[in-house]
Design a protein around this nucleic acid. Structure first.
Lengths: 165, 165
DNA sequence: CTTCGTGCAAAACCTTTGCATTAAA
DNA sequence: TTTAATGCAAAGGTTTTGCACGAAG
């Protein structure tokens, strides 16, 4: 992997994961593959419980246990494929950290929804600040807290988006 | 100094808390006052467990139960006196959100040091973005990851911070 | 009085772990 | 075969909650 991997996506998530695993003397098992596929089947944010409830109820040989889902998510994070972007309703929220443009999030404290926005402006400021401090920046995470448009105009009562299953 | 000055900080945390509580038809009890005092007795970051272990072992009439500490921290957060700034070791980290300038952090992945910088620039961008999305912003948290000046130029060996707190 | 708050213990959650069994390489 | 991974259930840790009692307005 001496190629420039900074421009666009030339390597699939699975290849990247496989490579990471090999450097760790770990294996790409059927279970890890299933988790990987499920996670990258959509670009939506998700939390562990959502994934677990999907995969522990899958039929036959697509079933993966809770423990393995948790353990695999750790590996996916370490491999650079996933990252935690927020915390909502007491759960970490994950998103793809590979092959998609940099962005940050507006986090609604009422319903827990996440809204993405491009990180371009923020990145400029961050770069300037980093330079000022001689800090070699590798990334950032910005969470904006408040109330989303919908909840602002909606009723005062709480409508937390809990499990959607 | 005139007590009509509402610019700058002329109101103590306790006064602000009292005011908040009254708007909620809630009471400034002895227990809430003790938690408040303990929290504002220093500017250090802290987590719930630290506070709980201090206050549940206090002598006699300064003792506060775990449940009340948790409940009071929620009120302090809602009142705008406290905010969560990070998550470490599975616990939320709190800091004062009143009477001190807004700032964010550069986080060194080598030595673990935190460097604060003023949030003014970031806040402008955040406000603009929030407005665009009809998001009623109440605050933000920005963590910049990378390597600090010292570690960049320093020895190649690692100087990981000792586990604090 | 009436309402709100506290403390306790239990419950609810989320995450990790020990261990016997299975399965990659 | 050798070593890593899985699944299960139990354990760990954090946060919330039901309830009876006590305190504040």
């Amino acid at each position: 992997m001496s190629d420039l991997e900074s421009v666009s996506v030339a390597v699939s998530p699975r290849d990247k994961f496989r490579e990471y695993l090999s450097t760790q003397n770990k294996r790409l098992t059927r279970e890890r593959d299933i988790v990987l596929e499920q996670v990258f089947s959509s670009h939506e944010h998700f939390d562990r419980e959502e994934l677990v409830s999907t995969l522990t109820t899958s039929s036959g040989d697509r079933r993966v246990s809770r423990a393995t889902v948790y353990r695999t998510l750790q590996e996916l994070e370490r491999s650079g494929l996933l990252r935690k972007v927020a915390r909502a309703n007491g759960r970490d929220v994950f998103e793809h950290d590979y092959g998609y443009p940099q962005h940050d999030h507006l986090i609604c404290g009422e319903c827990g929804s996440l809204t993405e926005f491009p990180a371009t402006e923020i990145s400029k400021v961050v770069s300037a600040v980093s330079a000022t401090h001689g800090f070699r920046q590798s990334g950032h995470r910005l969470e904006v807290y408040g109330t989303c448009d919908e909840c602002c105009r909606g009723s005062r009562g709480r409508h937390p988006k809990l499990d959607m299953l």
